[in-house]
Nucleic acid binder design. Structure first.
Lengths: 222, 222
DNA sequence: AACCCTAGTTATTGAGTAATAACTTACTTC
DNA sequence: GAAGTAAGTTATTACTCAATAACTAGGGTT
């Protein structure tokens, strides 16, 4: 295993794929803050320690970079859902997902904020079809777990969007979700449960938040 | 009543207040599309038929213009809620608000989209306190009607945020709300009803959508 | 050692954009 | 009708930013 060589400026030299991954990771944080129009490619490049023009050899243009970043964000959410629902079904699985998503408020609010950024960026006709695709993918995943129960689907996504807004404007989470938390901070009862209980085995969910695997580099040794 | 005189370029001459109103109305549409960073002051100025520098005599800077526009958007929503709940209380009032908000999807989706734009713009520390104030104002209004019932509050705002996203990425409204519509297109049953029924008089709501008065010019003769 | 491929750089351009300054035109009022 | 005030303009600045072009350097392979 050759030691990674470094360029003149001290930057470690990587394969294009590795660099792309690094860029996307940094871009999540920046785009989550500034959105598509409020984030410069120079800022992202600076964050990963690479020159601004080099970004355009890794990505066709800014939109491609943005889309790759948003896709990564959605994938991480999907992976979180997949992880926390492993071995669960029906009510318990839904409960676990809702719980996990709310926990992202504390653990990785960038994932929530970049979703909102994606939605507003969807005004661009070039971006919109891709962003709808990401949404649909998430919808499919959840739909499979809820059994397409329309009430549960609506409530689940509605509450998710409220989480996103809470993250964006930094509202205290307890304002809208606090009453469903027990003293250990875990979600114990909610309307999703109410509806979900009808479609699967009941009981108190054993939902715990798993640190989501990174979908950009499936087998990466960080 | 003197006929409005026109300037050399054919633009009608207005009082500063009237012009500010006109600017804000145009700005709603533009900011709803492009957001704070994606909308140029020149575009807005062009839309109202005024030179770009003149905007800065009507508003301190771009942020002030944006905030005035967002405030206007929130006020219109509040006014819609006030109008449709007139004479109603409890379950019926909540139902009417939920109904009215969903109807904005078809009637004035800019009001929903500019909300999302406000939320993402709240990353700016100068804007955030104002935007939270707008949110809190809306929260108070709804809270007064729900009697602060936490479950209803959460469900109501959650569904509202889902509406916003549906407007932004142009999802078919039926996907998440369609099952609660009867053949005449009106909302007939939803979870909000379920929860709301507990806090007020039951029955089928007679909610209808009122065209909201314009809060920018309270007594304007358009 | 000559070649080639890939990672990366510097320099530059051209367009867009918020904001300022200084000027002009119209209405009002004495 | 002169003077003041309020509405609006043109011209300009200082800056940011995406994207291109052209160049450099490292590491294999033959």
């Amino acid at each position: 295993m050759a030691a990674p060589s470094s360029t003149r400026a001290g930057t470690v030299r990587m394969s294009a794929d590795e660099r792309r991954t690094a860029v996307i990771r940094a871009a999540v944080a920046e785009f989550a803050k500034g959105g598509f129009n409020g984030t410069s490619t120079a800022t992202i490049a600076g964050l990963v320690g690479v020159s601004q023009p080099y970004l355009f050899r890794l990505f066709d243009d800014k939109k491609a970079l943005f889309l790759a970043t948003v896709e990564y964000g959605f994938q991480r959410v999907e992976q979180t859902f997949s992880t926390v629902t492993e071995g669960l079904q029906g009510h318990e699985a839904i409960h676990a997902m809702a719980h996990a998503y709310q926990d992202l408020l504390d653990e990785d609010s960038d994932l929530l904020r970049i979703q909102l950024q994606a939605y507003v960026a969807a005004h661009d006709p070039e971006l919109k079809p891709h962003i709808r695709k990401f949404w649909d993918s998430l919808d499919s995943l959840v739909r499979g777990i809820t059994g397409s129960d329309p009430e549960v689907m609506t409530t689940f996504f509605a509450r998710g969007m409220l989480c996103n807004v809470i993250a964006a404007i930094d509202l205290p989470r307890e304002r809208y979700f606090g009453d469903f938390l027990s003293e250990d901070g875990r979600l114990v009862e909610c309307e999703i449960c109410e509806a979900a209980r009808q479609i699967g085995p009941g009981g108190t969910a054993a939902g715990s938040t798993a640190a989501p695997e990174d979908p950009v580099t499936p087998g990466a040794t960080d």
